[in-house]
């Protein structure tokens, strides 16, 4: 759909409003270890920060190694002091590539999921 003239874009001569911090689906904001990063020491836990608060009963994360075997401590939980943080403990990890897989439900009921990798290289 294309239109020739700007007039079609008129919604009153109000100012271009800035994007406000809005809610909706929980998207991954950032993680430690960072998405796609290489670290030198094994982390003790994997932490994921989301763009909004999560439902603890339906939000989970797991870590698998290169062969697809789950290697985390199975204690995936939403942080008690910050409901937008999801974390899981890991044992001392050997050098190699790992994949973090998450599926979360935001407090307004929307489901999002995704995954990313990180690598340990001493």
């Amino acid at each position: 759909m294309k239109f020739g003239h700007p007039a079609v874009a008129l919604v009153g001569a109000c100012a271009w409003f800035a994007s406000a911090p809005a809610a909706a689906h929980a998207f991954l904001d950032h993680a430690i270890p960072a998405v796609g990063s290489t670290v030198h020491e094994s982390p003790q836990s994997i932490r994921l920060w989301f763009t909004e608060q999560l439902e603890p009963a339906f939000s989970h994360v797991q870590v698998v190694d290169a062969s697809g075997k789950e290697i985390d401590k199975g204690d995936s939980h939403v942080d008690a002091s910050d409901a937008s943080v999801l974390a899981v403990g890991v044992p001392a990890l050997a050098p190699g590539k790992y994949r973090v897989q998450w599926r979360v439900v935001s407090v307004d009921t929307h489901v999002t999921e995704g995954d990313f990798t990180f690598e340990i290289k001493p």
């Binding site: 294309k2 003239h5 874009a9 994007s19 809005a22 909706a24 998207f27």
Partner: peptide
């Protein structure tokens, strides 16, 4: 209510012009 609100999506502008206020 079941969709991702516009503020969270990368928009695809349908017009040849935009307004710069």
């Amino acid at each position: 209510g079941t969709m991702v609100p516009g503020a969270h999506r990368s928009p695809r502008w349908p017009f040849d012009y935009a307004l710069d206020f």
